[in-house]
Write a protein that binds this DNA or RNA. Structure first.
Length: 280
DNA sequence: AGCTACTCCTGGTAGC
DNA sequence: TGCTACCAGGAGTAGC
């Protein structure tokens, strides 16, 4: 499932092929992909616009648009579980799970492919309409150790659901949350307000290191869905410490990795390196 | 405030 | 072999 490193990889790869292009035609193979405005109105908002930049915020990608040099809104997208973006010649046959196609003025097309139909597209005048409630970027300058320590203390939530909460910090999903908690030696059910400054510091460092390392390897292709827009699988799944490693030895201490369910998500821990909090 | 359950979806897979 | 049942989960929502 695309999380921050996967979306970052995707944005980097499609950027070079999109910036400077004009959207010649839009086809919604499955209209439900249009979150706002609905259906054909989304397509109409895009046709004729020029792409000036492509960037990422949390797990969203953003395509900035202009008309005659004037701002013309933004195409915002979320790949959710199984979404992918890639660019191919417009003459190619779209695959069976293609949900949207943006045909460009150079004979290429951007495809939004999404077997599970959870992915969505928005066209908005102001990106804050979609991105406004997101927490800070974990690799950005606002995500400091003191900020995280204070944020953890201000809440009284289990660490895992808090880290998955996009309004707390933007971009972490199930995989990288499990990886970061393991790297920090913290149990996913630890209450956020129970961390001392040293533990908060370990978590801060773990989040940043895990995300940076995953970006360097172009994300993770644990499931069958994710490929970069250039068709390569990511490489970070080979580095997983706990995710999907149930029963295998912890790389740190050799104890078997166990799986539990936290916040309705499969959750992977080393029971020795991540001791369960006392009480509940 | 924060928890759980439910919803949206469908490819992949375990079990028979 | 072929069928069924269930699982995965990001995020929104409802209810406690």
């Amino acid at each position: 499932m695309p999380e921050l490193p996967e979306v970052e990889t995707i944005a980097r790869q499609v950027r070079a092929r999109l910036v400077g292009r004009t959207i010649a035609a839009v086809r919604l193979h499955w209209p439900g992909i249009a979150a706002r405005p609905k259906g054909a109105a989304l397509a109409r908002s895009l046709v004729g616009a020029a792409i000036t930049s492509v960037w990422r915020r949390g797990k969203f990608f953003v395509i900035d648009l202009t008309r005659s040099g004037e701002p013309a809104g933004h195409l915002v997208g979320h790949l959710r579980m199984s979404g992918r973006l890639y660019i191919e010649p417009s003459s190619a046959h779209p695959g069976p799970h293609t949900r949207a196609t943006l045909a460009l003025d150079d004979g290429s097309s951007l495809r939004f492919v999404d077997p599970r139909k959870f992915g969505r597209l928005w066209w908005v005048a102001d990106v804050e309409e979609v991105l406004g409630s997101l927490g800070p970027e974990p690799l950005g300058s606002a995500f400091t150790r003191p900020w995280l320590a204070a944020g953890l203390r201000a809440r009284r939530r289990s660490l895992k659901p808090l880290l998955l909460d996009q309004t707390f910090v933007a971009g972490l999903g199930n995989i990288y949350t499990d990886e970061a908690l393991h790297a920090a030696g913290l149990h996913p059910l630890r209450s956020s307000d129970s961390l001392d400054p040293a533990a908060a510091g370990r978590l801060h460092r773990a989040i940043r290191r895990v995300l940076q390392a995953a970006i360097r390897r172009e994300g993770s292709s644990f499931d069958t869905f994710y490929r970069t827009p250039e068709g390569r699988p990511g490489g970070y799944q080979e580095r997983f410490l706990v995710y999907g490693r149930t029963g295998k030895p912890c790389r740190g201490c050799g104890t078997a990795i166990t799986r539990l369910v936290v916040a309705q998500r499969g959750t992977h821990i080393c029971p020795r390196c991540q001791p369960r909090p006392r009480g509940r």
